[in-house]
């Protein structure tokens, strides 16, 4: 579904990606994690044809994103972190935008709007930031695009909405769709995003499923600072140390904490080269 091969990209003279490779098959909700300025949004824009690579090749849904074919664009919905909604009714918005998305499902859209408790009579420009986000998310999910890109989707959502978001997004996934969620709010995304892609220093340093990770590493909280050579990463937390170790055959699988996994991968990327499937 998505193949990026030896991608180079730079902003002017500042190189961001060098020789970046990424393959994303369909049917999963991918989590894209990375520190500020790592290039997450740039990567999403390269995938969606909003930015052009300097070299390398890319294939998104069977198309070269640089050609910006309408057939590709109508199969991608991208909800950015910052967006604009005009002052109009939902009906008008649908009338002006649905024609561009041939797979749009109006019944599903109504369901999502109801799920997110959005006021149908209110102008969408008058919605709060969180409501606007829920509106666009409803539109994106109902558009039935093969690729749904969400950049920081839980920013601005209240606590019940975050739960609703996870439930709704998970229920909308089908075998032919792929969702990519870029986020810093990893706790909001636990039990939703899997596999995980971690972008660091212009490279993909981690791209694996949580199941595969839990086969090879384990996480636990220990009272004292661990010193043995099986330790990949440890961090001081209130009440002890959160420790990431290589998992032995005798050990039971542990819950993978995304925040700890991210910190471990960014701190010791070399250690994870051997554990990725």
């Amino acid at each position: 579904m998505i193949t990026l091969d030896h991608i180079d990209f730079s902003y002017g003279k500042k190189s961001l990606f060098r020789d970046l490779d990424l393959t994303i098959p369909s049917g999963s909700i991918y989590g894209l994690l990375g520190m500020n300025g790592a290039g997450k949004t740039t990567l999403l824009k390269l995938i969606s044809g909003q930015l052009f690579r300097s070299s390398g090749s890319a294939e998104i849904l069977g198309y070269d994103p640089q050609k910006r074919s309408p057939a590709m664009l109508e199969d991608i919905f991208y909800l950015p972190e910052e967006f604009y909604l005009p002052q109009m009714s939902i009906d008008t918005y649908l009338r002006l935008n649905v024609p561009f998305y041939p797979k749009f499902d109006e019944a599903a859209f109504s369901r999502y709007i109801e799920t997110f408790k959005l006021d149908l009579d209110q102008k969408i420009g008058d919605y709060s930031y969180g409501q606007k986000k829920k509106f666009l998310l409803s539109f994106g999910l109902a558009s039935n695009t093969s690729l749904l890109i969400l950049d920081e989707p839980t920013n601005g959502l209240d606590i019940p909405s975050k739960t609703q978001f996870r439930r709704t997004v998970a229920s909308a996934l089908t075998g032919s769709r792929t969702f990519i969620i870029s986020t810093h709010q990893v706790r909001d995304m636990e039990n939703l995003i899997d596999p995980i892609i971690i972008l660091h220093d212009g490279r993909i340093i981690f791209n694996d499923s949580l199941e595969s990770v839990s086969d090879t590493i384990c996480m636990q909280v220990e009272d004292t600072e661990p010193m043995d050579d099986q330790v990949i990463y440890s961090e001081h937390i209130p009440g002890g140390y959160s420790v990431v170790r290589r998992r032995s055959a005798a050990q039971a699988a542990s819950h993978i904490n995304l925040e700890t996994l991210f910190n471990a991968v960014v701190t010791a990327p070399e250690a994870f080269k051997g554990v990725q499937s």
Partner: peptide
């Protein structure tokens, strides 16, 4: 328009 260009860029048209 900085705030509106995203939807223009992603519009599925030639």
């Amino acid at each position: 328009s900085k705030v509106k260009q995203h939807s223009w860029l992603m519009l599925p048209v030639h």
